[in-house]
């Protein structure tokens, strides 16, 4: 199973490092990262493998939320099924 982590906010040093450290701590494997910076505005979409996750999905969502608040970013982890069901027939 996969989860999508979205990070939106003002660009600063070490955003990817912070998110990927948190992922590593939870046993979440990063499969793909795409990012854009538009006029200081940072958007990153990370696709991750959560099969060997060491915490519950709910706890992981909380961790990402907390990290977002601490870094003044919007960080959300969402299960892949919501994207699959919306965009695939």
């Amino acid at each position: 199973m996969k989860a999508v982590i979205s990070v939106i906010g003002r660009d600063s040093v070490g955003i990817i490092a912070k998110v990927s450290t948190s992922c590593a701590e939870c046993g979440v494997n990063i499969l793909d990262i795409s990012q854009t910076v538009l006029e200081d505005y940072f958007t990153m979409i990370m696709i991750t493998d959560i099969d060997r996750m060491t915490v519950s999905f709910s706890e992981f969502v909380d961790r990402m939320d907390k990290l977002g608040r601490e870094s003044s970013l919007q960080i959300h982890a969402m299960h892949e099924d919501i994207f699959n069901s919306m965009h695939k027939i």
């Binding site: 793909d32 979409i45 696709i47 959300h76 892949e80 994207f83 699959n84 965009h87």
Partner: peptide, 16 residues
């Protein structure tokens, strides 16, 4: 594989 534009579309629908 999930397409980035689809992911962003869904996130925008929810957040915006």
């Amino acid at each position: 594989m999930l397409a980035i534009e689809n992911i962003i579309e869904t996130i925008n629908m929810i957040r915006e």
